Computed example of a mutant assay.
Amino acid sequence: MSKRDYYDILGVSKGAPADEIKKAYRKQAIKFHPDKNPDDKSAEDKFKEAAEAYEVLSNPEKKQRYDQFGHAGSQSGFGGGYGGGGMNMEDIFSQFGDVFGGGGGSPFDSFFGGGGQSRSSGGRRVQKGTNLRIKVKLTLEEIANGVEKKIKVNKQIVCTTCDGTGAKDKNSFSTCKTCGGQGAVRRVTNTILGQMQTTSTCPTCNGEGTTISSKCNTCHGDGVMRGEETISINIPAGVSEGMQLSMSGKGNAAPRGGVPGDLIILVEEILHESLKREGINIIYDLHVSFVDATLGASIEVPTIDGKARIKLDPGTQGGKILRLKGKGIPEVNSYHKGDQLVQVNIWTPKILNNEERELLEKLKESQNFKPSPGKNEKSFFDRMKEYFE
């Protein structure tokens, strides 16, 4: 299989200056870095391919040979290149001190939390703790105003006896004999393309570079133990049922001083006894007597901020929608708030005494108490549609 052109890999022209080549490689390295694309073999291959291209094009002598003879000219001094085994992941990361301005470690240690593992400044891999998921139930008032919740979480915490080292004491550590403290082992195999070198995590020390002779009696060498932590969670106003919030580093602690996982908070809404949420609006069903609806009245209704008084005009019809502006739910991270919509429902008594019945019989004959056809034909949903339009 023929190799791709190095200039095409980095997306630069053949006459590109050194700073443009470096900038292009930096962009490719960030895009396909293993810490950003865990367990993605295709991304890892492209990461190595970009590193090979940069290793050649950033070197004036190798670049000149490549420009004259193509890949055949670049093989000498490159040791086989990508697919030839002369350049492994450790060699690639050694370039970062030049390209990213660091000391040779991965620039992604500060950008990403990593997958199951991430690199330490010494090039070794440290494990990452697992994410933890919890549910938080919120009232409508808490959702509308935002709230700080203090939650006790049962999870993996750093061992209090060994401070997460997993060792009985500081003298229990020794350099791993398998990898010599590198945290990785190299294997070289001969192929028709030359020697191919691969690097993998040391199976003895799991990439830490050290082994423990005497393990902590509390955590048995894991560096973590089961415990409880009280976590303060600031929930913004406007969240909704099913929304997930994330708190970095508040999940399960990682073995042997690794990076803790994240805490994922799933929001659950507690139904209100009288108010109903519709997006950022609040719906309230108001039941009034036909006397109040006929004569008009000033009535107190509940809102998420307490009580509010509304005015019913004389002759208010059943199904009318009144609006309390700004009494709804705010949008998340926004100053915009919804409204409270009050639907008027006419309440009809089921039991009447003789005096009340006689009075209604007299009113029944009055022309004003006879309904006008077609006045109340629109449904509540039709009126809601008209409101939003």
Rank of each mutant, 00 (worst) to 15 (best):
G83E: 12
E241I: 08
G146M: 07
Q75E: 06
A24S: 12
E49V: 15
G257V: 06
G85I: 08
T316F: 03
Q68P: 04
K128F: 03
G319I: 13
E278V: 15
D285H: 08
E229W: 05
Q156L: 00
C179K: 02
E228T: 14
Y25E: 14
H33S: 01
I231H: 01
S74F: 01
A254L: 10
G183K: 06
I351R: 07
E44Y: 00
G238F: 07
Q343C: 09
N353R: 05
H336P: 04
E55D: 14
R256S: 01
R186Y: 13
C202N: 02
D222T: 15
H220D: 06
T230M: 01
K14H: 07
R4N: 11
N88K: 14
T198N: 09
G122W: 10
N281V: 06
K14T: 12
G85Y: 10
R187K: 05
K168V: 15
P260S: 00
G319V: 13
K327V: 00
S366T: 15
C176A: 06
G338I: 02
E358V: 10
L360N: 07
E300T: 15
G86L: 02
F111D: 11
G77A: 05
S379P: 10
I351P: 03
K155Q: 00
P60G: 14
F380E: 08
C162Q: 07
A51P: 00
F69E: 13
C179S: 02
S274W: 03
I264P: 00
